[in-house]
Design a protein around this nucleic acid. Structure first.
Length: 194
DNA sequence: AACGAAGTCAACCGCTAATTT
DNA sequence: GAAATTAGCGGTTGACTTCGT
């Protein structure tokens, strides 16, 4: 059988860490042709990589205005609050932190913040366990009045976030809605503490 | 100094959604 | 409207680094 024209598709693609040469090839190509049609970019730029890999490299590393490392306290606080609201929707969270990528936030969450949360949860569990045992004694027959209500502080949102915030119409990194949420959240925290 | 454990982060994989033909 | 292609997302992996013994 004669080889087909798409034989190149069978060619084994490079994997693993990108070299400086590959980076510059990709950057140069995208500078000229733009960052779309990743499969074409992968083949035309002369890189022995799949389109997916090129896209990821561009978005997470080569794209202009990328901030790397040193996540500030403000950013960390923002991540914590947004995660509380959105859950593991890293790209949405990243969209609210200019210069940060979903991958970076996901990694930061998994290696730093999830531990902090766990420690905090454990401490809370201990104190709430003590509280609930004493509360149970007084509330044995009380109905579940707040059933269905969104309990702020639970890790998973119980309402449709997409419905609540219309992400589709938001093109910029405007932080107005976040500020509103954070204000609300702060109020909630204050009332919870009382 | 050597070694293993734990932590970090870049990159890959599998899947779904969106777009194009 | 269906099928094929492309883009994007979140979870996971594995190489590398740092830390503790």
């Amino acid at each position: 059988m004669a080889p087909k024209n798409d034989e190149s598709a069978k060619k084994v693609m490079s994997k693993g860490a990108w070299t400086a040469e590959e980076d510059s090839k990709l950057s140069q190509y995208i500078e000229i042709h733009g960052a779309k049609r990743w499969k074409t970019i992968a083949t035309k730029s002369g890189l022995n990589r799949c389109g997916k890999s090129c896209r990821l490299r561009w978005l997470n590393y080569l794209r202009p205005n990328i901030k790397r490392g040193n996540i500030s306290d403000e950013e960390e606080d923002m991540i914590l609050r947004l995660h509380k609201l959105l859950g593991n929707r890293w790209s949405l969270i990243a969209g609210r932190l200019p210069g940060r990528t979903d991958n970076e936030i996901k990694n930061y969450w998994n290696s730093h913040l999830s531990k902090k949360i766990n420690q905090k949860d454990k401490r809370q569990e201990v104190s709430t366990a003590q509280e609930t045992t004493s509360q149970l004694k007084t509330r044995v027959a009380a109905p579940m009045e707040e059933e269905g209500a969104n309990i702020v502080g639970s890790s998973e949102p119980t309402f449709d976030v997409n419905e609540f915030f219309d992400f589709s119409t938001e093109g910029s990194y405007g932080l107005e809605w976040v500020n509103k949420f954070l204000e609300l959240d702060e109020d909630q925290c204050l009332t919870e503490k009382r």
